[in-house]
Design a protein around this nucleic acid. Structure first.
Ligand code: MN
Ligand code: MN
Ligand code: ZN
Ligand code: ZN
Lengths: 139, 139
DNA sequence: TTCTAAATTAGAAACTATTCCTAATTCGGT
DNA sequence: ACCGAATTAGGAATAGTTTCTAATTTAGAA
């Protein structure tokens, strides 16, 4: 609790109970959750929580660069507590989103073809190693 | 018309008028349009066109690998007639989506960290060169 | 501690991209 | 031209997100 409160205070974000809990959830869950996943996990502990508050909080976290936003799937936005920049893998079979440790030449680029770069998203899509193994068992 | 009809026939897709027109639009417009943009441009020429048909058609085109799908923005899906694989730039100021000619080391990779790769999407986000120029004039 | 103004939250309503459903139309082969 | 199958149109439904507003909470002043 105190750790997350401190992070918020340091950034100049008013450390409300809801914000602390959401930040804690993001820090402890690297599943790149959707708003629904965050809400679903927290409303048991914070029964009055509303989905709007989750949206509001994530918007603030974004504004203060506490979270990154992924548009790797087609129907919903996914969030993660911001760490090192990294790329992502999406398994078309089981839906998992995994961090990739690929070294991207452009990660540090300020500029590409005359355009100013502020963020780079590398989305790899296919079948994850786990699902590939399950497949072997089947055949 | 004939050119697009032929493309559809070659793939085994029944070449209806709607499908031909949508394919023609995609081939002549490299703006990575949304469903609404496609519908808005075509319903003048094809007054009975329905948005559902645009969705249906794009789903078929996808299935037959005639179009690629971009999830570069947060609120809608964008489509493009499939060419060489390439990465994209999204301008946060004017909303344009541009093709990038960056050479990605992983473009040919079959496998990354044990996961089978079927597609790679590189989304670069920032301010485009045109918007940067406009900025200079302002200051 | 009590008071007050400003910020935050909750919940419902609105919005919008997409999907679903179904009847009417069109298509291709006979 | 006829028929069964595929496609289309358009309205209804769905779901993620945003907007609105009143109630609550916060933090600082008195
Ligand atoms: Mn990640
Ligand atoms: Mn493109
Ligand atoms: Zn998987
Ligand atoms: Zn621009």
């Amino acid at each position: 609790m105190e750790k997350y409160k401190q992070i918020l205070v340091d950034r100049g974000i008013k450390p409300t109970y809801q914000r602390i809990k959401i930040l804690e959830y993001l820090d402890k869950n690297h599943s790149h959750p959707t708003v629904d996943m965050i809400y679903g996990a927290l409303y048991k502990k914070v029964p009055t929580l509303s989905k709007t508050t989750v949206y509001n909080t994530l918007d603030i976290f974004r504004e203060y660069d506490l979270v990154d936003v992924l548009t790797i799937t087609e129907s919903e936005i996914r969030y993660e507590y911001v760490l090192q920049p990294h790329h992502h893998f999406f398994c078309k079979r089981c839906g998992k989103i995994l961090d990739l440790d690929v070294n991207c030449v452009y990660q540090e680029a300020m500029c590409v073809e005359g355009h100013k770069i502020e963020a780079i998203h590398g989305y790899f899509k296919g079948i994850c190693s786990e699902c590939l193994l399950k497949n072997e068992n089947v055949s």
